[in-house]
Simulated scan of single mutants.
Amino acid sequence: MFRHKDTFKNIKKHAMTILFTLVILFISIWYYAGPRTKKYIFIDGGAHNGESLLAFQKTGLYKKYPWKIFAIEANPYKIKNLKRMPGITVINKAIWNKNGTVEFILSKYDSTSSLYNNRTIKQPKTITVESFDFGQWLCRKFSVNDFIIISLDIEGAEYEVLDKMFADGTIKYVDRFYIEFHSSKLKQFQGRENELLSKLEKSGVLGGFDSVENMLDGSCNGWIDTIEK
Rank of each mutant, 00 (worst) to 15 (best):
M1V: 13
R3W: 14
K5F: 15
D6Q: 13
I11C: 09
H14P: 03
M16G: 03
M16D: 14
V23H: 03
S28F: 15
S28Y: 14
Y32I: 10
G34M: 05
P35F: 03
K38L: 00
A47H: 03
A47K: 09
H48Y: 14
H48V: 10
G60Y: 11
W67V: 01
K68F: 00
K68Y: 07
F70H: 03
I72A: 01
E73N: 01
K78W: 01
P86Y: 01
P86I: 01
G87F: 03
T101H: 11
S107N: 10
L115W: 02
Y116D: 01
Y116N: 04
Q123K: 09
V129N: 04
D133T: 04
L138M: 08
C139E: 15
S143F: 07
S143D: 15
V144I: 08
F147Y: 09
I150D: 03
D153T: 01
I154N: 07
E155I: 04
E158S: 04
E158I: 09
Y159I: 09
Y159E: 02
D163P: 07
K172S: 15
S184N: 12
N194D: 15
N194L: 10
E195M: 13
K199A: 13
L200E: 03
E201L: 09
K202Q: 14
S203R: 12
G204E: 01
G207S: 09
G208K: 13
F209W: 10
V212A: 08
E213M: 10
S219P: 08
C220S: 13
W223L: 12
I224E: 03
I227W: 11
